[in-house]
């Protein structure tokens, strides 16, 4: 079958996912899901906050782009359709254990070092914490994948959400030039 070449259309390159909104599945970008405060299916509110704050400190713009909603959504996706970068990194799905254990370790490490939650860290404290997890497991980082690996994974997911879409390309002034726009639903049945 011949596919028409380079379809340009509004919405092309959007990362549209199927979210449960008041008993109905709706197609939303992670950014819209965040704006509509769609409830999380896998993450607690604290875990989502940690992802958004830490993710945004690593990749500015990731919070507004809906990083926590993207990760939460993908933790429910079936193995074969999963879009998280982890699938390339010799971690077998399901990925919940990876994220949930790393988030717990991260929470504990922050509390151990600063006696605070991540929401209460100053910008300076957050700036100090990131290089720590890039290098070694900080004190309190237990029963979880290595901190440096978690940093790499979270950074990659955050870059996906922030820059890997048409909106992200626009931010960088790069033409998206899609041949085929992404499907309205990433294979997740509503």
């Amino acid at each position: 079958m011949q596919v028409s070449r380079r379809k340009f259309s509004l919405g092309c390159g959007a990362l549209t996912l199927s979210f449960l909104v008041q008993s109905e599945f709706k197609l939303l970008t992670p950014e819209n899901a965040k704006a509509q405060n769609i409830p999380f299916q896998n993450l607690t509110q604290d875990q989502a906050l940690l992802i958004d704050i830490l993710g945004d400190a690593i990749v500015p713009g990731a919070n507004a782009a809906g990083l926590s909603h993207f990760i939460d959504h993908q933790l429910s996706a079936n193995d074969k359709d999963n879009l998280l970068i982890l699938r390339y990194l010799r971690v077998n799905p399901p990925f919940n254990d990876f994220y949930l254990s790393a988030l717990t370790a991260c929470e504990t490490a922050i509390e151990k070092r600063y006696n605070k939650k991540i929401t209460d860290l100053s910008e300076a404290e957050l700036s100090e914490f990131i290089p720590l997890i890039m290098q070694n497991n900080p004190e309190g980082w237990l029963n979880a994948p290595p901190a440096a690996f978690f940093y790499f994974v979270l950074r990659s997911d955050a870059i996906d959400v922030t820059y890997g879409t048409r909106a992200g390309f626009d931010t960088l002034d790069i033409p998206y030039m899609a041949h085929i726009e992404p499907p309205r639903n990433l294979g997740i049945k509503s």
Partner: peptide, 13 residues
Amino acid sequence: LNDLVSSQIQARR
């Protein structure tokens, strides 16, 4: 061919 969507994220499938 229609499954070959222009996205590095969706290419993972």
